[in-house]
């Protein structure tokens, strides 16, 4: 579900000494196929050196004169999305992974980007649902309110049958673009699967309702491929109970998403576009 730094980190990493010459470090890169190193002195990490640093410095220099002394650590049990956030902040190109205060691995920016490619949907360009799980966990950790909106395209099977699967794919791509461009800095969207999309908001249910309503309005006015009419049903759920039950957070998030999906099915059945689920029934649903 959620991939952790420990799952993807480079465990067999090399270190370089602060007095090593850059020429010898360059040859290490081609041998190890790794483009970043912790720089050590007297058994301590004193800096980090990346391929970018090597390109910028004179090859005659020593590691100490090319490295960055801005060392950024990440816990081995952090989500890979946390690592992405750190890289996106732009302060480092190499993360040192720590577990119980021991250096256990490294992650370079290029390595993470390759790994994250697997967590993005190729058709829509949206992240997959583990991105939503990570951000939901973050909201819970910050004691923030959160609501999910589960969006499901109405009669998508019929669109595929009447207009072909290529047309269906184009519509899904267009939906992905509409949703991503209508997110705010605090809301997140992922492609959940097939013709379903999942939106996470840090809002109470009434605000999430308005947010989802606006998304549906934008979708209903959008001129889709071949002017095929596309409508979407949405199910909404909010969490109020999570703070009381900090254990099994992932399971609770799964239950909430499941409830939102059931609410979207209800909205579809009732032909009411939007349906709100409450927190108390979902656990019964999800078992």
């Amino acid at each position: 579900m959620i991939r952790y730094v420990f799952d993807i980190m480079i465990k067999k990493y090399s270190t370089v000494n602060v007095l090593d010459g850059l020429r010898s470090i360059q040859s290490l890169i081609s041998e190890n196929r790794c483009d970043g190193f912790p720089v050590m002195e007297d058994g301590q990490v004193v800096g980090v050196l990346t391929y970018k640093d090597l390109l910028q410095a004179h090859p005659n220099r020593i590691a100490a004169d090319a490295m960055s002394d801005h060392i950024v650590y990440i816990d081995a049990h952090s989500s890979i999305w946390k690592a992405k956030e750190i890289f996106d902040a732009g302060s480092t190109e190499l993360l040192l992974v720590r577990d119980n205060n021991q250096l256990v691995g490294i992650i370079t920016k290029s390595f993470l980007e390759t790994e994250l490619g697997k967590h993005f949907d190729l058709l829509t360009g949206l992240p997959k649902s583990d991105f939503i799980y990570y951000n939901a966990m973050r909201l819970i950790e910050n004691n923030q309110e959160m609501s999910f909106a589960f969006l499901d395209v109405n009669n998508f099977g019929l669109i595929d049958k009447q207009h072909g699967h290529i047309a269906g794919d184009i519509i899904l791509k267009e939906l992905g673009t509409i949703l991503s461009t209508n997110m705010t800095e605090q809301t997140y969207v992922s492609r959940f699967g097939g013709d379903e999309f999942l939106v996470l908001t840090p809002y109470y249910v009434d605000q999430c309702y308005l947010f989802a309503q606006n998304l549906l309005r934008v979708i209903s006015h959008y001129p889709f491929h071949k002017n095929i009419p596309v409508t979407v049903s949405a199910g909404i759920v909010e969490s109020k109970e999570i703070q009381e039950n900090p254990q099994n957070i992932l399971r609770t998030i799964s239950n909430l998403i499941n409830l939102a999906s059931l609410a979207s099915t209800k909205a579809k059945k009732d032909k009411c576009e939007l349906s709100i689920a409450t927190n108390y029934t979902p656990c019964n649903f999800a078992g």
Binding site: V18, A57, H58, N60, R61, I62, A64, D65, A66
Partner: peptide, 8 residues
């Protein structure tokens, strides 16, 4: 971009 850096 000198061949010897300040640390060296």
């Amino acid at each position: 971009k000198a061949p010897i850096g300040p640390e060296a």
